[in-house]
């Protein structure tokens, strides 16, 4: 473990808590893409199946349960509890165009061709594009509430911090995982225009307006 990965995991946890808290407090999921949340739940479910087969540390096990529980809780709030506030009209990204190519790529490019490893690889590829429905929804509505942009900033920062972790681990342990690194760079690049808008606008108290 290193400071980059620890702060990355914390940024990830903070993002999830910001979102859950926002939906719970405002009793509304307006402006939130349920599709992205479904993709995240799929990412954690396929990635953390190794909870039953391998133990890394109490921290690792605890965080996996937290990410699984919070992602399903978020889906429950969006599609069950506050479904009346779910914005069907703007959450229209075709997620099958993200799931199927990720699965196909995982079957073609992986470290080992076995069930858990292919699912892990699928979760890595899917996570890199899982935010697209949310970014698409923000661009369609043309704006995002500031709390949603804080959520996106924390979520985008988590994988950016993981890139620093991968550099650190390569420099100190000679450890690297090219699949995770390439997907992580793609994932972080997808946030770049948002990061720019967040830093130039939201931090100056303006509303986040994405070019529609």
């Amino acid at each position: 473990m290193n400071i980059f990965r620890l702060t990355g995991d914390l940024a990830h946890l903070i993002a999830i808590i910001i979102l859950l808290h926002k939906i719970w407090k405002s009793r509304s999921c307006a402006g939130i893409s349920g599709k992205s949340q479904v993709l995240f739940a799929l990412v954690y479910t396929t990635r953390y199946l190794d909870l039953v087969t391998s133990y890394v540390s109490i921290y690792n096990t605890f965080m996996k349960f937290v990410f699984l529980a919070t992602s399903y809780a978020t889906i429950y709030l969006i599609y069950v509890k506050f479904k009346a506030t779910y914005d069907h009209n703007h959450d229209t990204f075709r997620i099958e165009f993200l799931i199927l190519p990720s699965l196909a790529l995982a079957l073609l490019i992986n470290h080992y061709f076995n069930f858990l490893e292919v699912l892990w690889t699928f979760s890595i590829y899917l996570e890199s594009v899982a935010i697209l429905p949310q970014l698409f929804m923000v661009s369609k509505t043309g704006e995002a509430e500031s709390i949603t942009s804080h959520y996106l900033f924390a979520l985008g920062s988590y994988r950016a911090l993981y890139i620093l972790n991968w550099i650190y681990r390569y420099a100190t342990e000679g450890h690297y995982d090219l699949i995770a690194i390439v997907a992580g760079v793609v994932q972080t690049v997808l946030y770049c225009d948002f990061f720019y808008l967040y830093i130039t606008k939201v931090l100056k108290g303006k509303k986040l307006q994405l070019p529609a």
């Binding site: 890394v56 965080m63 080992y112 892990w120 972790n165 450890h175 690297y176 995982d177």
Partner: peptide, 10 residues
């Protein structure tokens, strides 16, 4: 390469 075939990152 992997840490003994398991992934040690979240």
């Amino acid at each position: 390469g992997h840490l003994g075939g398991t992934h040690d990152e979240l």
